[in-house]
Amino acid sequence: MTHPLVPHALRVLRRTQESHDTFTLEAEAPEGFAFSAGQFNMLHVPGVGECAISISGSPRRPGRLVHTIRVVGEVTRHLSALRSGDELYVRGPFGSPWPVERAHGQDLLLVAGGIGLAPLRPALYAALARPKRVRRVALAFGARSADDLLFARELERFRAQGATVGVTVDRATEGWQGPVGVVTKLLPELVVDPPSTVAFLCGPEIMMRFAARELERLGVAAEDVWVTLERNMKCGVGTCGHCQLGPYLICRDGPVFRYPRVSRLMTIREL
């Protein structure tokens, strides 16, 4: 029996600075590694700790394991110091995936807040890779400022591949010509056919709650809205107890949930 809490060593192939506080690590995945869009890995820094990071690469290229990471604490600061050729210590993949197949024959809308775009990117890749399966693909992306935008050049590529992409910032800096304001403001324009829209939301909980409410107002069925939740994750396999939210162990039952399953739980303070 192998122990689920012992990491594997992978080789970092490339490090890309995405913004002032966010970077992407591409690593060589172990033979046979496979994941689904929305799943996460535990990234370990020996002697320092470990944190849960969603996979941000394409599920169709499982050999290249990609994580996009924002520096928020000690572990992520150590990870940001890694360079090509260094070892990256990984456990996973864990958690439930985005149900991309539910968007087949439908419109798919992705709503991302800040670093929340990273866990959604694999779903975007999956949807755009099979343009005949998903009718229309739209992305609403909200960031704090233009300096916090992720994958800016790639957003153009998504547009070229047929996706409608809306970007808004909380605070305009010099040179910003796009919309200013919360991401929910982008939604009326991006939701074309509400009854046939499937939406995946990833960002701060307050953003997801308001986005879900707006989608409901626009006529998108609550059952067609999916969110991803974050809690303190230690083990990733449902045995340490830390990531509980009411009846759920986020690492095991989530992180992707159908919104009606968690909507009430998300409104209870300090649950």
Binding site: H44, G47, V48, G49, E50, K234, C235, T239, C240, H242
Partner: peptide
């Protein structure tokens, strides 16, 4: 009660 913390330490 089964909750456990996972603690990494360095020399």
């Amino acid at each position: 009660c089964f909750c456990v913390d996972i603690v990494d330490k360095s020399s």
